[in-house]
Simulated assay, not measured.
Amino acid sequence: MTAGKQTILVTGAAGFIGSFVAARLAGLGHQVAGCDNFNDYYDPRLKIGRVRALLGPLEVPCRAAELADPVQVAALFARVRPTLVVHLAAQPGVRHSLVAPGAYLQSNLVGFGNVLDACRRHHVEHLLYASSSSVYGGNTKLPFSEDDPTDAPLSLYAATNKANEQMAHAYSHLSRLPATGVRLFSVYGPWGRPDMAYFSFTEKLLKGEAIPVFAEGRLLRDFTYIDDIVESVVRLLFKPWTGSDVAAPHWVVNVGSERPVTVLDFINTLERVLGVRAELDFQPMQPGDVAAAHADASRLQAWVGYAPTTPLETGLTLFGEWYNPRSLIRPNAAPSK
């Protein structure tokens, strides 16, 4: 990989993770360009707020682009001419994939396919792309290791992430494109998505509304703070895999806290942070949900010398300090420290 300053394209740069990653890379002195389709899966003003607060001070452009359109992708790569690509644009959400499957096929499969081909044509030095812990499906062996089977997804969202890993491996094999897939575990923190559990739980707690709790609160999740995600992604981006696999310079890496908690324990922590008691509305387990997610982050630690360290209570406290119950749109809020 070329040393020194890089030209880096971050897709999904107005999103939760993408905005923090783009800001961090720009802060390190790299030439960063972002793109996002600014769709209405949740209020687009939150994306605009992230761009203003996190990217604006660093003069990182974030232009509108639809990655499912190959013409727009070709124009994007021709304009930016990236040496590195961080692909974080995707249609997220397990439950939404049950009601809007077309959005996942377009964004997660067609869009990623277009990005892969553009990386091939422009001889990108390293592609880092987001996958998800959901690829482990209903595996009961904990913690999840990258070598565990991922051939039984429980949702379309999970299936598209698994397909992306396979497509990346194929492109990596055919064109020797160095590629790293990061399997992310329950990311949380300031500027997160309103549909995520910690965000919606906070909103309901402060409004005095009941929190829906599925499967009696026994679901196990490996909540990972945004700063730990960003640190892991940046370190991995600048250290592509150099293993002995002759098939392809591609691999996948878990990024998770290794400290899973039940949803009930998570709610108890949130209650302490906010100083509010929760009213719980117990409901059956939802289609597509997995019973447990627990990361084995030893591969990450061994390769880049880092693994997530932020305790849940610390991360939720930082989120609580950022959250403004009067408005979800905070264009002047400072980024997480």
Rank of each mutant, 00 (worst) to 15 (best):
A295C: 04
D151Y: 00
F144W: 02
T7A: 05
I17C: 12
P249I: 12
T314K: 15
I229Y: 15
Q166W: 10
A75W: 07
T269N: 14
D195K: 04
L219C: 08
L280F: 03
L220Y: 03
N254D: 09
E125K: 03
T262E: 10
A65Q: 12
S134K: 02
L312I: 15
G305L: 06
H169D: 13
A90N: 03
L300S: 07
Y171H: 14
R95N: 09
C119S: 11
T160Y: 05
V135T: 07
T310Y: 10
S131T: 13
S107V: 00
A307S: 12
V124L: 09
D227V: 06
L127R: 04
H87M: 12
A179H: 01
Y157A: 00
Y136V: 05
A278Q: 01
L127P: 08
L28Y: 03
L205G: 00
P331Q: 00
W322T: 02
A90W: 08
R52Y: 03
G217D: 04
P331K: 02
R330W: 06
E59M: 05
A293N: 02
Q91I: 03
A68H: 11
V115M: 08
P308G: 04
S175C: 14
Y129F: 15
A302I: 05
L58D: 01
L116G: 04
G189T: 00
A248Y: 05
N254I: 15
P101S: 06
L220P: 11
T180I: 09
H122M: 11
M285Q: 08
F238L: 10
Y171R: 08
E125S: 01
A22I: 10
V51W: 05
R221M: 13
L28Q: 13
L316G: 11
L174G: 06
A302R: 11
A248G: 11
P331F: 01
A168F: 02
A75N: 10
R272G: 13
S145A: 11
A278T: 02
L67K: 13
Y198T: 07
H250D: 04
V230R: 12
S155N: 03
R120K: 07
H169T: 13
R81P: 00
E321L: 04
G15I: 07
R221L: 08
V233D: 11
A26S: 15
N324Q: 04
A103L: 12
Y171F: 15
F38G: 03
F214L: 08
P92T: 05
D289M: 01
L116I: 00
D69R: 12
A78S: 14
L270T: 11
R52S: 02
T7N: 08
A297I: 09
W303E: 13
S132F: 08
C62Y: 09
G49C: 09
T83R: 10
A53E: 07
A22Q: 12
V86M: 10
L98G: 01
V230W: 14
G56V: 10
Y41R: 02
E125Q: 12
V182D: 06
S107T: 07
G113Y: 05
F16N: 04
D227M: 11
P287E: 02
L84V: 14
Q286M: 09
A292P: 05
W251T: 15
P70F: 08
